[in-house]
Design a protein around this nucleic acid. Structure first.
Length: 135
DNA sequence: GTTCTCACA
DNA sequence: TGTGAGGA
């Protein structure tokens, strides 16, 4: 599948990425430190992102807007990676697997809330966001 | 002009 | 996470 190659081809600069994702360079670099993405580097040590990276960054952004923290995003993306690997290993076309089931997300968020006993700053926003999960 | 790393009144 | 320094 040459599509994989194109998808992972390093093409975008930091500037392009920030415009594409609306994230700050600071955030993008931080997410890389957290091993959420692994962009290539040029000789000058400049980051080069692929379509794949853009997708992941958008997913990260989306999840965090839902109230998931870095740790949670990590788990979700890890699970995602695992299922992708097993797919390749089994060489199954597409067993059809949604990004993340509502049930999974609820479970994750619930656990996070109990562990963190609400985040100090965004606590209100989160409980607002999550209110529908507990009704 | 951009991006990189490191460090923090 | 933001921001500034200092360099490539």
């Amino acid at each position: 599948m040459s599509d994989e190659i194109r998808r992972n081809m390093p093409l975008f600069s930091m500037g392009t990425i920030t415009k594409l994702t609306d994230l700050t360079p600071r955030q993008v670099r931080y997410y890389e430190q957290q091993d959420l993405i692994r962009p290539e580097r040029t000789r000058g040590n400049q980051r080069l992102f692929s379509f794949h990276d853009v997708d992941r960054l958008l997913q990260i952004k989306s999840l965090m807007e839902k109230g998931v923290n870095i740790a949670g995003v990590k788990e979700i993306l890890q699970d995602q990676d695992r299922s992708q690997d097993s797919k390749r290993a089994e060489q199954k076309p597409r067993p059809s697997k949604p990004d993340l089931s509502e049930e999974e997300l609820h479970k994750l968020l619930k656990r996070q809330l109990s562990e963190l006993s609400y985040q100090p700053n965004r606590g209100h926003l989160i409980s607002g966001e999550l209110s529908r999960f507990f009704h």
